[in-house]
Amino acid sequence: MKTLLKIILTALAVVVLAKILPGVTVIDYTTAIIVAIVISLLNMFIRPLLVFFTLPATILTLGLFLFVINAIIILLADNLVDGFEVSGFFTALLFSVLLSFFRTILFSIFKDKNQIKN
């Protein structure tokens, strides 16, 4: 249930960001849910590989290269999902930063009360 809630909240953040950012387009809510699932899967499987292979660049830039990896994940989601478009790299970079920010806020609002006690 917690995973489903996170996917729905991520889809909500994707829709809001598509309305705010001029270079991001999502055609409907179903596409936003698919984008949320694809981003979650890419973060689960592809992101660790990218982090591992770019570890020297990440260390050299003191972790700032992780923003580039997040933008690459967004561009991969753009290529995989029809109905979701990001106009370029810098738009994907801004989208990924804002998506992380919105997800953090939304997840903290809906945090499980049992986690607070522990």
Rank of each mutant, 00 (worst) to 15 (best):
A36G: 08
G88R: 05
F84E: 06
T25S: 14
L42S: 08
A57R: 01
F102Q: 07
I59D: 04
V38C: 11
L62W: 09
I8G: 06
S87M: 01
F107T: 01
L4H: 05
V38H: 12
I74T: 03
I20F: 15
S40P: 01
L99M: 04
L62R: 03
T61G: 08
P48M: 02
G83S: 05
F102A: 12
A77M: 09
V81E: 04
M1L: 03
G23K: 08
F90D: 04
I105T: 02
T30E: 14
V16S: 04
V38G: 01
G88T: 00
I7F: 05
L66P: 03
K113R: 15
P22W: 12
A36P: 00
L21R: 06
Q115S: 13
N70Y: 10
I73N: 06
Q115C: 03
R47W: 13
V81Q: 05
G63F: 07
L4T: 10
F107I: 00
D112C: 07
L9A: 02
A13T: 05
A77T: 14
G23C: 10
F65L: 07
L9M: 08
T30W: 13
F45G: 06
T58P: 02
T54V: 11
N43P: 00
F110W: 10
V15Q: 12
L93H: 10
L12Y: 09
P48A: 04
P22Q: 14
L62H: 02
P22K: 15
T58G: 02
K6D: 04
V86E: 07
L99F: 02
A57D: 02
F84R: 03
V26F: 07
V51E: 11
A36R: 06
V26L: 09
K6M: 10
G88W: 09
T25C: 10
L49D: 11
A57Q: 06
N43G: 06
T10Y: 05
R103I: 01
T10M: 15
L60S: 04
R47E: 13
I7D: 07
S96I: 15
M1A: 06
L66T: 10
F102L: 14
V86M: 09
T58M: 15
L94S: 05
V97I: 13
V86C: 02
F84M: 09
G23N: 11
R103E: 02
F45S: 06
V35W: 03
I8F: 13
T61K: 11
V97A: 15
A11V: 01
L94N: 00
L75T: 00
T58F: 09
G88I: 03
N43R: 04
D82C: 00
I105L: 14
G23V: 03
T3I: 15
I73H: 07
I74M: 14
V97M: 11
F107Q: 02
I105A: 12
